[in-house]
Design a protein around this nucleic acid. Structure first.
Length: 805
DNA sequence: AGCACGCCGACT
DNA sequence: GTCGGCGTGCTC
């Protein structure tokens, strides 16, 4: 009799449980559990989800009795060897729990949902308890639905052994089922059925006609109703007569099914594109795990390079992974890829429902889709035999995940490229300094597209010096030159895109008498005004309150909002241009599913002539009639106390400038700024990335910042400020001993937003070139901090943070 | 993360 | 005297 044992990573995200637990596999499950499958296991006195990561037949040498695996949730592994190994690496690289890394690779629908019920085991119970149970003997048992006293009462019952608590673990993943019908009569039987009908039973005749054409084929009820023009009730009655059977069939939720997408053919390539395509194709053919930096100005045809190299991988029977920032995963973008590869494409992005994401994931897993286009988390798509990995807009900071595990999709993509021996293409008009520097050093292969495919010059960029212009400006946010430029375009029936740079900016309420600013009671930041819900909201904890009419501090009525919000600009603009049709696009107007696409579609069909929005309009939009792009406030992102602020500003301005004049019409860009001499703004005006790169590298060198130095951030948080401060200063002291004199520690300091949801945050940043002992120290730090976790003191380590203010 | 075990204060 | 507070430690 063979015995099997499984090593399982349990769904308990804590340092103490960050290790495999061994379970025995009961006889009825032998040869049914494989590494990469989800299982349900007893853990302590409850049940949890876990991932089997290893199966062995050797009895482990332990002094206690092993528990049995309770249930296997999958028929085939949901994570293959590659992804299991990747999870291991990810856990180490990001200092995260293994379980978090395994979970992040799967659609949310495949996580477990936990619930508890309490069941009576005795009949001698008090009337109070009887009332809670009603006529049932098992009811839900959790602190959220029960009142505190009821919970207490039931706990007492449990302690007295008059009731037992049952733990449920459920798989949230559910395939969508739809009703299908299938004829079950032969043509002879159909003919005889026809004879039993009354002559005036028109619908029944129609039903039999339809069933005759259908034969024994199975179709969805929805389609049958469309094809036959018969109602659902008529199909139900046909079922009763025994003419057909109804079944439930599994169906994919395809969010793009409705849209008819025109097929597109590969386009003729410009010489530079051709060189790039040939070079990448070569790497695909030779199974080279090289990384390419594809640096191409806006409109230079990077996408066509992506599409043609993906085609090469597909021709070789391989698959392709294409990552794009969430914000540019627009219907326009999806249409381009689907247009080339049709139903072989799976799309993964945050606009999909949990079920839709699960379905797309299954299409990939079952090899029904060979091309995956998606945002950050799509980097874990269960593709096999990947031939090429593409990351568009590689400089985008949204590729870094903000919560555990804090991975950067760029690192993961390169790691997967190594496993599959395939090229990784990083594309951008404004590469991150890190990638551009690596291209310089020859770590990445550098491919350049310097010309726009339509041979058009880049749009003319002009600056408006707001220090002067503000004196005569028609509105607070719109200068005279910008206004007249807008008027001119509108008169020519052309379109205008206006961008409000809201990075590090919000509209808050301030009293003009006493300077009082309305702040969040839980967090150390001012509340933001939301006109749509007529309330003040905290962007960090979600706290919401009414807009005060008088100052809470001095009772003055002169309390009003400051700052520039899209709503305010929209109002100003509408007053200046009463006939203009303005579409506003920001977090408020795009929150609803599909709203983003709808606004773009409205603008594309010229229902409006001005599109006013935040950063989200800077990327990937391609409207031929847009001839003017205005940036209302270039500086807000520049003034952030952040070493990347110049880079971000340059990237944003370059990108939004690319929105102007993409077809035959020449475009113009107007940038309003208070810092017209700043190099980031000057060089964005001249669209000179290379010069910007040179200057900015110099700045980074002098400041000792990436890419010259590595950085790692340590954040300690907790409810007691004293404890948090003590901990971070303790860590600082230990670090001083471990680090070489070449390393620099910034801080410790309170984070700029020191308090969020009544938790205090302190941080320190280590800048270093080579610290062989650091890695081990950080791992030990996490282990030694596990006791603090119970006392609500958390230590978080972030390798290569995107920014630290 | 839960949950039990265990040792100290304020109540029927 | 007990109930229940939350500090400590364990979960195959």
């Amino acid at each position: 009799m063979i015995k099997q044992f499984a090593e399982v990573i349990v769904d308990v995200p804590a340092m103490q449980t960050n290790q495999p637990y061994t379970y025995s596999i009961p006889t009825e499950l032998i040869n049914q559990v494989f590494p990469g499958m989800r299982v349900i296991v007893p853990f302590g006195n409850r049940k949890v989800l876990g991932f089997a990561i290893n199966i062995s037949e050797k009895e482990p040498d332990v002094s206690f009795a092993l528990k049995d695996i309770e249930e296997v949730l999958d028929l085939t592994p949901v994570l293959n060897t590659e992804l299991l190994q990747l999870a291991n690496w990810l856990a180490q690289w990001t200092f995260s729990f293994k379980i978090s890394c395994l979970q992040v690779m799967l659609p949310a629908a495949m996580r477990a949902s936990y619930s508890k019920t309490i069941k009576l085991t005795s009949t001698e119970i008090s009337p109070a308890v009887q009332k809670l149970f009603g006529d049932k003997n098992e009811i839900p048992f959790d602190t959220k639905t029960l009142t505190a006293s009821a919970f207490k009462e039931l706990s007492k019952l449990k302690r007295a052994n008059q009731a037992e608590v049952l733990y449920q673990v459920r798989d949230r993943a559910k395939a969508k089922k739809v009703t299908a019908i299938q004829g079950c009569l032969s043509s002879d039987q159909l003919a005889s059925a026809r004879e039993t009908l009354r002559a005036n039973a028109a619908k029944s005749f129609q039903m039999l006609d339809y069933l005759t054409t259908l034969g024994l084929e199975q179709v969805t009820l929805k389609k049958a109703m469309q094809d036959s023009d018969l109602s659902a009730a008529q199909f139900t009655s046909a079922e009763k007569k025994g003419w057909l059977v109804k079944t439930k069939v599994e169906k994919y939720r395809d969010p793009y099914r409705e849209a008819v997408i025109e097929q597109s053919q590969p386009k003729q390539l410009k010489p530079a594109q051709l060189t790039a395509v040939e070079r990448i194709n070569q790497a695909i053919t030779d199974h080279q795990k090289s990384v390419f930096l594809l640096q191409g100005v806006t409109g230079s045809g990077k996408t066509e390079v992506y599409l043609q190299t993906i085609a090469t991988a597909l021709e070789k029977g391989q698959t392709a992974l294409m990552l794009v920032p969430e914000i540019s995963l627009t219907p326009q973008m999806v249409r381009r890829v689907k247009g080339r590869f049709g139903s072989r494409v799976a799309v993964l992005h945050s606009g999909l429902s949990e079920g839709e994401k699960y379905d797309e994931w299954r299409r990939i897993e079952r090899h029904e889709a060979q091309v995956v286009v998606g945002a950050r988390s799509a980097v874990f798509a269960p593709l096999e035999d990947i031939g090429i990995i593409i990351m568009d807009e590689e400089h985008e900071t949204s590729y870094k995940q903000e919560d555990m595990p804090e991975y950067n999709a760029r690192d993961v993509a390169i790691k997967r490229g190594e496993w599959h021996n395939c090229p990784v293409v990083l594309g951008s008009a404004t590469p991150s300094l890190e990638s551009r520097a690596r291209a310089q050093k020859g770590v990445y292969e550098w491919l350049r597209l310097d010309e726009r495919i339509n041979g058009q010059p880049l749009p003319e960029v002009n600056l408006v010096d707001m220090r002067q212009a503000l004196k005569t400006a028609p509105a607070l946010d719109i200068s005279a030159p910008l206004l007249s430029a807008i008027e001119q375009r509108l008169a020519q029936n052309e379109q205008v895109v206006l961008m409000l740079n809201r990075r590090g900016y919000s509209s808050f309420l301030m009293c003009r008498e006493c300077g009082f600013v309305l702040k969040c009671p839980n967090c150390d930041i001012s509340l933001t005004l939301h006109m749509d819900s007529r309330s003040m909201k905290c962007h960090y904890c979600g706290h919401e309150e009414a807009i005060p009419r008088t100052c809470p501090s001095c009772q003055s009525k002169k309390i009003r909002y400051y700052g520039t919000g899209t709503e305010k600009v929209e109002k100003e603009l509408q007053e200046l241009l009463p006939t203009a049709k303005i579409l506003r696009m920001d977090v408020d107007t795009t929150r609803r599913k599909g709203a983003h696409a709808k606004i773009l579609q409205q603008f594309g069909s010229k229902e409006a002539n001005i599109l006013l929005g935040t950063q989200m309009i800077a990327k990937g939009l391609d409207f031929p009639d847009v001839t003017l792009v205005g940036v209302l406030n270039a500086d807000t992102s520049l003034s952030l106390p952040n070493f990347r602020s110049a880079e971000r500003t340059f990237q944003l301005l370059t990108q939004v400038s690319g929105r102007a004049g993409r077809a035959e019409k020449t475009g113009e860009v107007l940038i309003q700024t208070f810092n017209p001499e700043h190099y980031a703004i000057q060089l964005a005006k001249n669209q000179n990335y290379e010069k910007f790169f040179g200057i900015e590298m110099n700045m980074r060198h002098r400041g000792g910042y990436p890419p010259y130095f590595f950085t790692t951030q340590i954040v300690v948080s907790g409810g007691s400020e004293a404890a948090v401060a003590k901990k971070i200063f303790g860590i600082n002291g230990q670090l001083q001993k471990v680090l070489s004199p070449q390393a620099v520690i910034l801080g410790p300091t309170p984070k700029p937003i020191m308090r969020i949801n009544n938790q205090f945050y302190y941080q320190l940043v280590i800048k270093y070139k080579k610290e062989p002992k650091l890695e081990q120290f950080l791992e030990e730090l996490l282990l030694s901090s596990q006791k603090d976790a119970a006392r609500n003191l958390k230590v978080k380590i972030d390798r290569d943070p995107v920014d630290f203010v």
